[in-house]
Amino acid sequence: MTETFSFNAESLDKVKFELSKYPEDRKQSSVMSLLDIAQRQNGGWLSKSAIEHVASHLEMPYIKVYEIVTFYSMYYTTPVGKYFVQVCTTTPCWLKGSDEVVKACKEIISEKQNELSNDGLFSWMEVECLGACVNAPLVQINDDFYEDLNYENTKNVLQSFIDGNLSPIGSQIGRKGSRAEEYVKS
């Protein structure tokens, strides 16, 4: 399979902005931003040609960029779904029932992590703490958090992506910010 990647016009604007932050001879400093831009343009993951394109754009050896891609957990080197679900399973989420969230993902998306769903819309993976423990358990879908989940409303959230009328982001039980739970009912 030969796929090619190059920045489109929209990405190039962003690239230009990122490059403007650094002196010309230090443009390699922007490698992480450029990889992110490339990853977004490429549907959430970095292909071989995307990595090489960023490397040549910054005049860096391929291996140096590849090192960065593999070092950081937010760059993906295999295809992900259009909606990429990251389920937090670290202790606070786990205590609050993240196993149920995982179960919902397995049912709706796929049995295994990092595998595209049949319709190609989703993939999911377990991740370490997403840093919103107060509203545990939660998932991150692309750039947004969906919090206060259980088996039922996880399924609803995922279904809403299939149906195309997206659930509101944030708490799924109507909590405002990170207020204590008793305020939700009143």
Partner: peptide, 19 residues
């Protein structure tokens, strides 16, 4: 020739050449 590098991190770090 910048062709050898360390991919992944921590315990999973591996030394390799690009692809």
């Amino acid at each position: 020739v910048e062709e050898i590098g360390a991919v992944n991190r921590g315990e999973n770090m591996e030394i390799t050449t690009y692809l």
